[in-house]
Amino acid sequence: MHTFCWYELRTTDPAAARAFYVDAVGLVVAAADACWRLRPDGPELGEFAVLPAQAAARGAPAHWLGHVAVADVPAAVQRFVALGASPLGPTQTRPDGLVAPLRDPLGAVLAVTSRTHASPTATLAWCDLHTRDPAQASSIYHSMFGWSPTQRHDLGPALGAYQEFAWRPGGASVGGMSDAALRPEIHTHWLFHFAVDDLDAALQRVRAGGGSVAGEPMRVPGGGRVAQCEDPQGAAFALHEAVSR
């Protein structure tokens, strides 16, 4: 099963970002460790890294880079390129496997990885793809990774169509794809949601830590609430309160 299994924050100030996410979101980071967990006894799920110079030179802001687990990185890159994706530099050899960052055919950045210690079942609360054409994006990701469309919602003229997806046919929804990138203020990107028990309290911590909140929290299908945020270095993320308070 191909899932997002690793979440790498590429940022201009990893130390400051680490302190922000520990306080505002509750990520758990061991002393002097660049990797983070969702709970003390949980698996490592990501890392804080310096924004690569070549990405900064292209004008890329600080951002979260989701890594999708694959068995064969070179073969996955070849398949994705055949679907219209673009490699963002050469495949990287890291101590625990290969990593290849790419731009999908509609412009969102992600990576494919063979990381040996990443946990493909310990994913975040939700994954949103902000794109220009959710129907085309759904077809691309289904062809590439087998992700299957589930419920479709009409969120009204301001928010448009929203297509949920599952990692595999018959599975529970784990994210959604919208046409939000048609709006001039939103770029095409994957937006990762971190679960919080109390959204309002978490948003206070985001603001106190130097981050920002985009608009008011929104009610989502299923009764939860979400809010889109930026950390102090400008990386976008979301907070997800699953149960209505």
Score class of each variant (00 low, 15 high):
V174K: 02
A135S: 12
D198Y: 01
G59I: 06
L110Y: 08
F20S: 03
W64S: 08
G156R: 08
A19L: 15
R37N: 13
Q92H: 08
P101K: 08
L129V: 02
A201I: 07
G107F: 03
R183W: 11
L182E: 13
P95N: 07
T11S: 12
V99Q: 09
G46W: 10
S173E: 06
A201C: 05
A111Q: 07
G215R: 09
A235V: 04
D133C: 01
A118L: 05
G210D: 08
A180I: 03
G84N: 08
A69N: 11
D197H: 10
D154A: 07
S143V: 06
A60C: 14
M218D: 07
Y141K: 06
V206T: 01
H240R: 03
S148E: 15
W190G: 02
A62P: 12
G234P: 11
M177V: 05
G146K: 15
S143L: 11
P40H: 07
A180E: 07
W190H: 00
F48K: 12
T113Y: 06
F4P: 12
G97K: 04
G156M: 07
G209Y: 01
L182D: 13
V50L: 15
Q136F: 06
P149T: 13
D104Y: 02
D33C: 13
V99D: 05
Q233F: 11
G170C: 09
G26F: 11
C229N: 10
A238E: 04
C5W: 09
R39C: 14
A53L: 14
A118Y: 09
S212G: 13
V226L: 02
R152N: 14
Q163N: 09
T113A: 15
G215Q: 05
W126A: 00
D197L: 08
S139E: 13
D41Y: 09
H240I: 00
G209R: 01
G42W: 11
D104C: 07
A161P: 07
V174F: 03
L239P: 00
F20Y: 03
M144P: 03
E164P: 01
R132P: 06
A137C: 06
T150N: 04
S173R: 05
G156P: 11
R219I: 01
H130I: 03
D41C: 10
H142E: 15
G89E: 15
T113D: 09
